[in-house]
Design a protein around this nucleic acid. Structure first.
Length: 391
RNA sequence: GGGAGGGUGCCCGAGUGGCCAAAGGGAGCGGGCUGUAAACCCGCCGGCAUAAGCCUACAGAGGUUCAAAUCCUCUCCCUCCCA
């Protein structure tokens, strides 16, 4: 049953009965997913939703990717404790275009309709906006968890944030969407769309929320603002490495939500050694974005460096002749690689025994790096930073 | 319009004239343990400097003082109560 699979891994489904009916009628549904181009990178949190959108596409439905270029300039208050800064039109445009490049790594470009909400809001009159705002009451807005929390704890809520759910809901009217997808933090906004459609006498959209992916810290949802994310645009090395840094417990969520593995498959994987399963996860995720060959390479490289403690094959080089300062001390050399926050950080690292030169721990920051021949000495700082010193 | 309370380091938050680069927590970083991790333990955690020390920092601008995150003036921003 196709329609069953479409509801896998979902969190909440509103309007389920009508949705099941529509699906079995064979009608081609318009499936809306809105993205706010407020930040240039998509994370694996978004991947969960894009996977679902892709499944709808594969089942023959129409995907509408809504770029909230107009709303981006306001900022979605969902899950936020403060007002977002306003973005310029130009920033929004840039973000939108990189968004699309990234999104089409997962969804089928040829079957996707891209719309921008500036198309209709750009020419909307203020009077229309007022009419729209009649459809909502303050009390209903305050039902929203994050608004309520902010209100009660004396945090500011701007009027424009209050308008946000209405604006997003209006998109659904214009697009005549049958289904809207989003993260569970979007539930309220999407429901507003549903009720606006009803009010207009249109067929209300089904609302499907997808679970929020837990971030790298294993606690909070994956989000750019928590800096616990893997981005579509991360290097193959980072996708692999970051995946390996998640805890064993959340690994299964990643299998389920990102790779769409079924329960049976996961049960099978649980029998293997957790590290092997995690490496396998990292390899598959890397492969999704960089192809199996590159993923294989990262797999080998990771095993080399971390499991066997060897140096990786690709080490960034630093040429001593490019040194700006006179003394080629360890401190100065590392300082000029721009891989560290400050010389203070380097000093601390050295003092704490985190820096090795050709495998030997270095305790003196003033050690002079000299007599370099090919292939060069290797400095290791912490677990992840490697530098090859060349003449 | 009137009254009251606030704005502190990446985040939260203590600090009401010197002992403040500023308690505590979180995040982050290094080390240990391990299976890369997570958990746990130890350490670090503004910048420059070998060090002494210097510089920058407690919303912003001025001022008082030997000395200001702390006192005064003005400005900006936030919240609450009354209208």
């Amino acid at each position: 049953m196709i329609s069953d699979k479409l509801l896998d891994n979902t969190d909440v489904v509103i309007g389920k009965d009508e949705l099941m009916e529509s699906l079995s009628s064979g009608r081609k549904l318009k499936v809306k997913f809105g993205v706010d181009p407020t930040r240039p990178d998509l994370t694996f949190g978004h991947l969960v939703v894009f996977n679902k959108l892709r499944q709808f596409q594969d089942a023959g439905h129409e995907a509408i990717l809504l770029i909230g270029d107009y709303t981006a300039r306001i900022g979605d208050p969902s899950g936020r404790s403060e007002l977002r800064p306003e973005l310029t039109q130009k920033e929004v445009e840039q973000n939108a275009s990189t968004y699309l490049d990234q999104a089409f790594k997962i969804i089928d470009k040829s079957k996707t309709i891209v719309r921008r909400n500036s198309e209709w809001f750009g020419k909307m009159a203020f009077a229309d906006a007022l009419t729209l705002s009649r459809s909502m009451t303050v009390a209903r807005m305050l039902e929203r968890d994050d608004f309520e929390k902010r209100f009660k704890s004396n945090q500011p809520i701007s009027m424009v944030e209050f308008m946000y759910p209405l604006i997003q809901g209006y998109d659904s009217i214009v697009l005549e969407s049958d289904v809207e997808l989003g993260g569970s933090d979007q539930l309220f906004n999407m429901l507003v769309g549903r009720s606006l459609q009803k009010e207009k006498g249109a067929r209300p959209q089904a609302v499907i929320t997808l679970p929020l992916l837990v971030g790298l810290d294993g606690a909070k949802k994956m989000s750019k603002s928590y800096d616990n994310f893997i981005a579509f645009n991360d290097s193959s090395k980072d996708i692999f490495g970051k995946t390996m840094s998640i805890s064993d417990e959340v690994m299964w969520d990643y299998y389920r939500l990102l790779l769409l593995k079924g329960k049976d498959e996961i049960d099978e994987l649980k029998k293997a050694h957790p590290m092997e399963s995690k490496k396998n996860l990292a390899r598959e995720l890397t492969g999704l974005f960089y192809g199996t060959k590159q993923a294989e390479k990262e797999y080998d490289s990771f095993s080399q460096v971390f499991s066997k403690g060897k140096d990786p094959e690709d080490i960034p080089k630093f040429s001593l002749s490019s040194l700006q300062l006179d003394t080629a001390s360890l401190l100065n050399v590392l300082g000029e690689t721009n891989l560290f926050e400050s010389k203070g950080q380097i000093r601390r690292m050295i003092a704490q025994g985190g820096v090795k030169l050709d495998g030997e721990k270095v305790e003196n920051a003033d050690l002079i790096i000299d007599s370099i021949e090919e292939p060069g000495k290797i400095i290791k700082a912490g677990k992840k930073i490697f530098i090859r010193i060349v003449p």
